[in-house]
Design a protein around this nucleic acid. Structure first.
Length: 422
RNA sequence: GUGACUGUGGCUCAAUGGUAGAGUAUCUGGUUGUGGCCCAGAAGGUUGCGGGUUCGAGCCCCGUCAGUCACCCCA
């Protein structure tokens, strides 16, 4: 047994997974360039209070999932559990409100939440995240959804489900919550204990219940869309109109309730098949009050986070094979100490000419060296031995058809460039 | 945080309570400088860890850790 193992919920990303990551990150780069988003990176560590304030005191993330600790200076720090609060901090601190609005940014990197581990749910996971700051037009809401949709389409997804809802604003949300509490209070005695608790602590979460006893009651429960204030209702109407014009398929799901306190108006999720109960690969929404909470001037914002591990798992489930990463097509083998020196120099020369090449190290038998070349699936093996050194030549073996050619050292680069271009 | 299932070489899995094995991967050979196929050999394990029951535990019991499933939460 190994002495050291990854911590619970942590994971090594090995080579078979890396091909998905490489593919996903390349598509993220293309998509964000296409839509005009600029990259921003913020630190993994921030003052703990930033997240407590930003994400919300009563949320699960803050209450029981944050990695929080005192550092050597006695400050309370936290590993970021999400991106948005840190980006808002950066927006205020760097005076980014002086840049042309709306400000479109994206980022990617690891996030940390101490959750009960499960497949597709990790304590360290990575997300692709975008935020648009300084504009409340619902056209921006649609744009943000479109960034996600374009990314997923370009990755090869064809069957994702988009769910949208509105969570209202500080004007209408409390009114709705009151109606909701009134409604469920009638049935209080029928509610399972979990839902009775929710009724007290976070009534919106009842909408998300999995309790068999509660689900029938949801049918007649008040929908938030009937209680939105004029501004929120108008916003939501426009959002659906714009989505309809774009013929973007969506489902209005009044049960979407995001776990972070800061959301206002638009919220949305995108779900994939094959990931069990952890099937949300993208979730986000509007947060028009957040920047003010973090100490900036009132600024509207909207964004989403999308889990890279889950995107990769969904691609694998759908048998979507990422393109193979480029790799060296030349292996240099040698026989004898003198030829080894020539081989070392040749590999260096090939790299300088931007030709991917590897040496078979270890002074192994020639047979073993060719075997290694075979397994590396290179196109050419270059063989250096005493004869070659004496003649200032190399033997180049075409691994496909086993043809061998003698090439002068001075010609190797141009010869290979010509062959590899075919 | 709640409930349940699983844990044997790197990987996939065997082994009635009685000597821990196979396939695969790795390394080396099958005469002198030639890969893929085939053959042979080597190496690789305190059966996740700690207790208990037993003459004897990979197997039974308890605990713990890890993974998995559902809840919860969320990406």
């Amino acid at each position: 047994m190994p002495k050291y193992k990854t911590l619970a919920g942590m994971k090594d990303v090995l080579f078979d997974d890396q091909k998905y990551w490489r593919y996903i990150l390349a598509k993220i780069q293309e998509t964000t360039d296409l839509f005009g988003y600029q990259r921003i990176d913020t630190p993994l560590l921030e003052q703990a209070s930033l997240f407590v304030r930003g994400v919300g005191e009563g949320t699960d993330i803050v209450e029981k999932e944050m990695y929080i600790f005192e550092d050597r200076d006695g400050d309370m720090l936290a590993l970021r559990p999400e991106f948005t609060a840190g980006i808002m901090r950066a927006y205020v601190q760097n005076g980014l409100h002086t840049m042309p609005a709306p400000l479109r940014v994206w980022t990617t990197g690891p996030l940390f939440r101490h959750e009960r581990k499960q497949a597709h749910r990790y304590r360290q996971h990575s997300q692709f995240d975008i935020e648009v700051l300084g504009e409340q037009d619902p056209a921006v809401d649609v744009e943000v959804i479109n960034v996600a949709w374009h990314l997923f389409s370009s990755l090869g997804f064809s069957s994702l489900r988009l769910y949208i809802n509105s969570t209202g604003c500080p004007t209408c949300k409390p009114v709705y919550i009151e109606k909701l509490v009134d409604y469920f209070t009638q049935f209080k005695d029928q509610l399972p204990s979990d839902d009775q608790r929710r009724l007290q602590q976070n009534p919106l979460r009842i909408l998300d219940t999995k309790e068999q006893a509660t689900i029938p009651l949801l049918d007649n429960a008040p929908h938030i869309t009937d209680y939105l204030c004029e501004a929120c209702d108008n916003h939501f109407q426009k959002l659906t109109t714009y989505l309809d014009v774009l013929e973007r398929p969506y489902t209005i799901d009044y049960r979407i309730v995001r776990g972070l306190d800061y959301y206002t108006k638009t919220v949305f999720e995108i779900k994939a098949d094959g990931l069990g109960s952890q099937d949300t690969i993208c979730g986000g929404g509007r947060y028009d009050g957040l920047i003010e909470q973090v100490g900036g001037r009132a600024t509207p914002g909207i964004g989403f986070g999308s889990g890279i591990e889950r995107i990769a798992a969904a691609l694998a489930h759908l048998n979507i094979e990422p393109p193979a990463p480029p790799k060296p097509r030349v292996m240099v083998s040698y026989l004898g100490a003198e030829a080894k020196l020539a081989a070392l120099k040749l590999v260096e020369t090939l790299h300088a000419a931007n030709i991917g090449a590897m040496l078979t190290p270890g002074d192994r038998s020639f047979k073993a060296q060719l075997k290694a070349a075979n397994r590396a699936k290179v196109s050419f093996s270059i063989i250096m031995g005493d004869d070659e050194v004496a003649n200032q030549q190399a033997t180049v073996r075409d691994m496909e058809n086993s043809q061998q050619t003698q090439i002068a050292w001075s010609e190797i680069v141009s010869w290979l460039q010509e062959q590899l271009a075919k």
